[in-house]
Each structure stands twice: as structure tokens, then as C-alpha cells.
Design a protein around this nucleic acid. Structure first.
Length: 510
RNA sequence: GCGCCUGUAGCUCAGUGGACAGAGCGGCGGCCUUCUAAGCCGCGGGUCGGAGGUUCGAAUCCUCCCAGGCGCACCA
């Protein structure tokens, strides 16, 4: 740790550390919803009372007396069964405010930074991206942004299954349409097949280009694009390293010996053709050999069965299966006339990403797809989504950012770090500062839990506190103008960063 | 049958052991001569699917049950 660059813990951490020292146990500070319960509160006395063999309230009272001595504490009270409620000083709040800049809360994991690859979307080039792929992209990309912000070295990769049966079927479907023949069995239907048939292009090549364009438009910056063909070339060299056997005209991988539910077929003996799992194994090796500490797969719930076989593939190759992490999100269903159905590109039961974006825009679409927990299924009715997009909370948050930009357009003063802090702060000012000071923990936890939906929820609260402050108090021309400018600038930094972490723009005007 | 996920306000959802369970939307009622009313304030609204258990304390952890989604392919 001698040379490792430790980030300066923020004032909340320092306060928690001081209290931990007093309590002899790690103190976690929470923000009570009831203002009667102080600026911060901790249950440390309740938690440690059993070991100390002391009544919680008595312990809390001792802590309160000593906390009172800390210079950042204005008042400390015991409440309820043994909570310790704390009120902080104005000076402490001012210090908290001073820490907030454009990169506030970044680097939470930089002392344990890893090289991380996030593979996302990886939809077949057998049609445009669906809203299901959009959820994958929005979720995976936001996780990547969070990990990057936390200090990891993150690469995003997209894998094209451009050599499999689905793609052949897709190509055949377009050909059939062109020549007026019947669709092949289980072939692709839908308007976009007709449109493709009318173009003089190779359907797969065309879709590869379309998908790259759509991904970029959805603000996902893919570092590397891989194709099934290049991965399959690695299979042959890999085979000797695998635990295999032949049965029923197939070469199998003995994955069941490595934690999978069952063995997986690798190669069809009759013609030597690779089955899908062969490429999976080669791809796992490819990823881990490229030196990533962690390879994250972002998969829909319908691919849940993949977790075991991917980890088994890693284990069979002699890698630590912990280096494979699979993030599962629940599916997006489409709703039509009150009925829910699973998306199927093949059947033509589908809502495409471009349709959603045309109707509500990238900002509302990304917000909508991310603000639900990834464990929560989403039903989407595009017409309803369009109707409701005006009520999307994303505008509420963006509006706060734009309002601040409006204030700042009225002043010439540059950002000033030596701001004189008023002796007494207004309630809305205190609330806003405390809210902003939560951001480092929110961002760090969202990254650790792979849960970007915590960001929009928090952003709404910040906008809430800002709008209330804005409504009650003038900034420009007020007696404490410099201080309030610093406050709204800090709020703007945090809002802009929160929006950026989920790939949403922070407008200067609305 | 087995595995994973879900069930919280009229609707869509937050809340990974703490103080009376929260927000948005919808409903009702107020607030613009002042930095953007895409805003602010107020009112109403709940057997946290059900039953047991662990705990000083459970929406949260454990078990069982009910309901829904997704898997359990030589498709991806």
C-alpha cells in the first residue's frame, strides 16, 4: 500500500471513521427520512450492544457524549431503542460542498483496479436490434460506465454470430422473398425482410453495418467487434486441452465434471462441423488469454442456462471460473392489445430499437430501460411509451441541469474555491448538500452491485432537492451569491455525471 | 418434475436487518411582474402474495405454499 494512490476519503467517510474509532466498530451513516432524526444517524449502539453486554441506549448515550466533542458534530442525541442521531455543523457541510467537482465520487475501486471486459448485446446480424437488445446494451453499457468510473480498465466487445444456422436461415429468407419462393421452414418474417429483399445487398453484410450504426446511435462505444468465424479458427488448437469423449456420433465436452448440469456437444462427427459450444469454449479462452481479470457476459434471462457451461468451460481450461461473470437481466416483452408476448425476430413479433428511438429519443429510451432493476421484467407497448415519454422523469432531471445552466449564464464569475460560507444555511441548502454528498457511495455501490438503476433513482432525488431549493431561494443577486453559485455548480456536476453514467445527455437548455 | 427471477399504493416501480414502508404517473386543491411553471406546495391512497421460523427488531434472512416470467436442444 506504500505507493498505492489512496483517494482522499470524502467528508462523510471521514466522519464515519471518526465515529468508528469512538465506537470501536465500523460505523455506517445513513440519512434518516425524518428530519427530526438528524442529518445522519447510526445504529452502531444497537449492533454492538450484545457483544458489549450493555444496554443499547446506555451505549448510545456514551457515544453521543463523545461524538459531541467532535468538531464536525453540532449535536448528538440518543433516540428510540438506541439510535444515535447526529447533526453536523455548517462548516462540515461547507467542506463537503468543496469536494464536489466534475469527477466527484470516481475512483472508488482504483486501489483494486482490474482489467475488465464487458461483452454486450451480441445479437445475431439477422435483423435490426430489438428493444430486448436495447435493454442488454443500455444495461451492459451503464455497468461498463460505472466500472470505468470506479477506476477499472474497461473494454466493451460485441460478438457477431454471423456464421450459424440462424444467419443462414435469415439469408435464405431474404433470398426466398427476392425469388418469390416460399419461406424456408422457420424462416424470418416481417416487413424488414421485404425491405432487404428490395435492396441489392448481401443481407448479412448489410445488417452488420446497420447494427454498428444503431449501437453508435444508442451511445454505446464498442472497442472490439468479434466474428464467430475468427473464434472458430481457434477451436482446433484448443481441442487437446479439453476433457472430451465421443458418443452418439458426437464429440462431447465433459462439462458436468466442472460444475455444469450436463455435458455439452462440441463437434458433429459425421461432418466435423462445430456446434455452438465449441465456439463458446474458444471464446472463453480467447477472452481470458487476452489478459482480462474479469470477463463479464450480459445475457437475457432466456440464456440463463449459460452460466454453468461458461464457468465450466473456464474451469476445464484451467482458469479460475470466478473470472467469468454473467449478468442476467429479465426479458422485455411486448404488449399489444393487452396481450404480452415474447419478442421473436423470426416470427416478426418484435419492436425494434430504432422504432423506440424514433418515438421517444435515446435519452428517454435509455432512462426507461435502465431505471428498472435488471431483475425486473419489462413490458413495453411502444405507443404507450411514446404517449408517456413526456412524463418520463428523465426530463425532470435534465430540467434541473438546464435550470442551473440558465443561472450560470447570468453570471460571469468563474468557479471560486474560496467561498465564504454563511453562518446559517437554509434548510433547502443543507438538504441539497447532504444529497450531493451521497453520490460517491451511490456510484460505488451501483458499480459493485452491477445495478445502474440506482443512478436514475438517485438523480431524481437530487433534482427534487434542487428544484425545491430553486423555488425557495434566489441565487443571482442574493446576499450569499458566491456560496449559492458554488452550490448549484456542485449540483450541476453531480447531475451531469449521474446522467452520463447511464448514457443520457445533460442539456444546457430545454 | 428440476433450476433462476419476480409478487410492495389505482398503474409503473424504489427500498440487499432498523425508528411511523417511499417515489413517479393518475385523481383532487392551491402557487408565475423576480435566475426556465418540463417547476413548487398541499390532500387522499398499503393485510409489503400467504403461512410458519430466526432476531431486541423482517418488505429485507430461512422453510413451505400460491401466482406469474424464463430456462432445462446436436437453436443462438
Amino acid at each position: 500500500m506504500l505507493h498505492a494512490r489512496r483517494l482522499p476519503a470524502n467528508v462523510v467517510d471521514r466522519l464515519a471513521a471518526s465515529l468508528s474509532e469512538l465506537a470501536g466498530a465500523p460505523v455506517e451513516l445513513e440519512r434518516p427520512s425524518d428530519p427530526e432524526h438528524g442529518d445522519y444517524a447510526t445504529n452502531i449502539a444497537l449492533r454492538t450492544a450484545p457483544q458489549r453486554k450493555q444496554p443499547p441506549r446506555e451505549l448510545a448515550a456514551e457515544l453521543a457524549a463523545r461524538a459531541q466533542e467532535l468538531e464536525e458534530i453540532e449535536r448528538a442525541e440518543v433516540a428510540g431503542p438506541g439510535f444515535l442521531n447526529l447533526w453536523v455543523t455548517t462548516a462540515w457541510l461547507a467542506e463537503a460542498l468543496q469536494e464536489i467537482g466534475p469527477d466527484y465520487g470516481s475512483g472508488s475501486a482504483s486501489d483494486q483496479a482490474q482489467r475488465i471486459q464487458v461483452e454486450l448485446i451480441s445479437a445475431n446480424p439477422a435483423g435490426p436490434l430489438t428493444v430486448g437488445s436495447a435493454r442488454n446494451g443500455a444495461y451492459g453499457d451503464s455497468v461498463a460506465r460505472l466500472l470505468d468510473y470506479a477506476g477499472h480498465d474497461v473494454m466493451r466487445e460485441y460478438y457477431f454470430n454471423d456464421a450459424g444456422r440462424q444467419v443462414d436461415l435469415f439469408r435464405a429468407s431474404v433470398e426466398a422473398r427476392r425469388s418469390g419462393q416460399e419461406l424456408p421452414e422457420g424462416g424470418y418474417q416481417g416487413e424488414y425482410i421485404n425491405e432487404l429483399a428490395a435492396l441489392e445487398v448481401d443481407p448479412v453484410q448489410h445488417m452488420l453495418g446497420e447494427i454498428r450504426r444503431e449501437v453508435a446511435e444508442f451511445r454505446i462505444d464498442i472497442d472490439t467487434w468479434r466474428h464467430q468465424g475468427e473464434i472458430e479458427e481457434e477451436v482446433a488448437a484448443l481441442l487437446p486441452r479439453l476433457d472430451t469423449y465421443e458418443a452418439e456420433g458426437t464429440i462431447w465436452a465433459r462439462t458436468s465434471a466442472y460444475g455444469d448440469d450436463k455435458d455439452r456437444p462440441l463437434i458433429r462427427s459425421s461432418d466435423g462441423s462445430y456446434l455452438y459450444f465449441a465456439a463458446d469454449v474458444a471464446y472463453v479462452r480467447d477472452k481470458l488469454e487476452r489478459g482480462f481479470d474479469l470477463a463479464i457476459y450480459v445475457l437475457g434471462a432466456d440464456h440463463h442456462g449459460y452460466v454453468g457451461r461458461l464457468k465450466a468451460a473456464a474451469a476445464m481450461l484451467g482458469y479460475d471460473p470466478e473470472r467469468i461473470e454473467v449478468l442476467i437481466y429479465q426479458l422485455v416483452h411486448i404488449v399489444e392489445g393487452g396481450l404480452t408476448k415474447k419478442i421473436s425476430k423470426r416470427r416478426g413479433d418484435v419492436v425494434f430499437l430504432h422504432e423506440l428511438v424514433e418515438k421517444i429519443g435515446v435519452d428517454a429510451a435509455r432512462w426507461y430501460l435502465i431505471s428498472r432493476g435488471h431483475d425486473q421484467p419489462i413490458d413495453i407497448d411502444v405507443d404507450l411509451a411514446a404517449e408517456r415519454s413526456q412524463k418520463n422523469p428523465v426530463y425532470y432531471v435534465q430540467y434541473a441541469h438546464a435550470r442551473i445552466a440558465g443561472i450560470l449564464r447570468n453570471v460571469e464569475a468563474a468557479e471560486d474555491s474560496s467561498v465564504i460560507v454563511p453562518k446559517e444555511l437554509e434548510r433547502e441548502e443543507r438538504d441539497l448538500i447532504k444529497r450531493l454528498a451521497e453520490f460517491p457511495v451511490i456510484a460505488a455501490e451501483a458499480a459493485e452491485r452491477r445495478a445502474p438503476h440506482a443512478i436514475p433513482i438517485y438523480a431524481i432525488r437530487v433534482a427534487d432537492d434542487f428544484h425545491r431549493f430553486y423555488h425557495e431561494h434566489r441565487v443571482v443577486g442574493s446576499e450569499t451569491e458566491a456560496f449559492r453559485l458554488a452550490l448549484v455548480r456542485a449540483a450541476q456536476h453531480v447531475i451531469a455525471r449521474a446522467l452520463d453514467l447511464i448514457g443520457v445527455e445533460a442539456p444546457e437548455r430545454m
